[in-house]
Design a protein around this nucleic acid. Sequence first.
DNA 1: TTTCTGACA
DNA 2: TGTCAGAA
Length: 150
Amino acid sequence: MMTDFSPDESFIDTNKLIFGIGQVQQITGVSGRQLRYWEAQKYISPLDQKKGVSRQYSLRTLFLIFHINRFIEQGFTLQAAVDHAQKFDAQIPALRKFLRGQLKGVTISDDKTLLDFGYLNHHHDKHVYGVIDQGGETSFEIKDVASQSH
DNA sequence: TTTCTGACA
DNA sequence: TGTCAGAA
């Protein structure tokens, strides 16, 4: 067993990952024409740039664009696709916040991976783990904390 | 070469 | 939405 991940480590500042419109087209498959149109319709907004200069998009906007396109391909209208994509986008901060606050570490062993979610409650007598087995199946596991003292 | 804006046989 | 023009 070896803990190869520490939630305290610093990661790449994703806000510094910016993409030109050409890159966004390659990655998302959305045409420049569409990107400019969506922007005109206020559905997306590039990083505040000066007029006439090449547009730059944040990673977050890149994801938003990707998802809007994904929903459109599933048959949704642009407006509906945007609504769904924004709803999805709005969930990301909560997911990150929860994991950042609750995930204590990841332990990888031969047979399975354990996500340490810390104590179940303030009693600190039970520990919660997220489990990923060999087949990729996920589940939770609550283990009693061994209280060998006293 | 890439991107920008405007326009539409 | 695609595509072409003319400019930066």
